[in-house]
Nucleic acid binder design. Structure first.
Lengths: 207, 207
DNA sequence: GGCGTCGGTGTAACTGTGTTACAGGCGCCT
DNA sequence: AGGCGCCTGTAACACAGTTACACCGACGCC
């Protein structure tokens, strides 16, 4: 049973597999060792720690995210397209979001897109501090949205729940509003709507 | 050493203390038992589980959050004030945010404020589905922002880091922008700016 | 050839976690 | 007194991350 000697990349690859399939909490050192057909200590030799392993995993996956290109006509639409592209990328790696969040590297997720955003904000005529604020506002909105979204998917049923909380009475006699708030959220729609609204204001000249 | 019999409330209270002081991961059943001067099984008897314990803790703390009142003149400013009040409340209980997030109850954090928001959106003239969308857009923005913010505070130094990433060259010769993006974020300012921008667009008549 | 060093692996243990089976104790009601 | 329900404690189980230590094999050096 001579195995080819274990490499750090091999460890990272099967660790990534485990995480992709069953989530980060399913990645235990022993399971990983079993999967690799080796002993726990070998893993500790190659990657020092569970922490370091997850760090390396995050680094790896973030690096794998492709570059983001803006599409569309006006500056506003192009910025929105960047936001949507980022969201799509993050949603393609659901566990990544959790891991990045747990490690306190949330901003890190956005760095690949920041450059594209700066370009578009410039094209829209914003400069200096105002441009930076616009970029960061969009950045925070997108990443925050993705965090919440991932969260919602994990918690299918809320306990008091919006459903029974919003009847016509509590909604100040606006039955349509009550119905809308009691119903499920349409994340795609809400995301586009929010980003578009935010960007519209940010690009307006004025305050 | 006759102790007064343990009560569920007592357990929850000292559990809340532990979490407040050292974060949720420091709350182990044995530490809690030691703190209470009792045995682990007693805790299990009163609150069934660690899960249930944390659930109860979240419930308790969320219930303790005061009601949110809108302030200010125009509808837009009043909505912004609700958002800021919610953010302030959540930031006053830093660990709560983490716990709520981990338990997938992120929306739950917003329920107390939702009612206030509905009122203000109504006052601004929005009805039905449009009103609901506005409420939810603000809701997602605020909660998302708080999540990111808490995250930033936990991770003082990012590894590639925005600092060395943004020099004048990469910022398309906008030195002021490079400086702004390389510098630290001012969360208060960014938050108010973002919410104000979002709300402004949401309240505009039209699409 | 013998020997030591270094890279890499394996066995078996340590500590600490959540959780539970089980044996009671204490007080109240009948 | 007896019984029962609330409550507590002892001791264990399974599983987690981590590590001390022995070992193996190749390589270089004397």
């Amino acid at each position: 049973m001579a195995r080819a000697p274990l490499t750090r990349d091999e460890v990272l690859a099967t660790a990534a597999d485990l995480v992709k399939q069953h989530g980060p909490e399913a990645l235990t050192m022993r399971k990983l060792a079993a999967e690799l057909g080796t002993a726990v200590t070998s893993i500790y030799w190659h990657v020092g720690n569970r922490e370091s392993l997850l760090d390396a995993l995050v680094e790896r996956t973030v690096a794998d995210l492709g570059a983001i290109r803006a599409r569309g006509a006006g500056p506003a639409e192009r910025i929105v397209s960047v936001a949507r592209a980022l969201r799509r990328q993050l949603r393609a790696h659901p566990h990544l979001v959790a891991m990045v969040h747990e490690r306190g590297l949330t901003e890190r997720m956005f760095l690949p897109a920041q450059r594209a955003l700066v370009h578009e904000v410039h094209a829209a005529g914003l400069r200096g501090a105002r441009a930076a604020e616009a970029v960061r506002a969009v950045q925070f909105q997108v990443v925050g949205f993705v965090l919440i979204e991932r969260n919602r998917e994990r918690a299918p049923v809320q306990r008091p729940g919006e459903e029974e909380l919003w009847d016509a009475a509590t909604a100040e006699d606006d039955a349509a509003l009550a119905r809308a708030l009691a119903g499920p959220v349409d994340p795609d729609r809400l995301f586009t709507l929010s980003v578009r609204a935010l960007v519209k204001s940010l690009l307006e000249p004025g305050t």
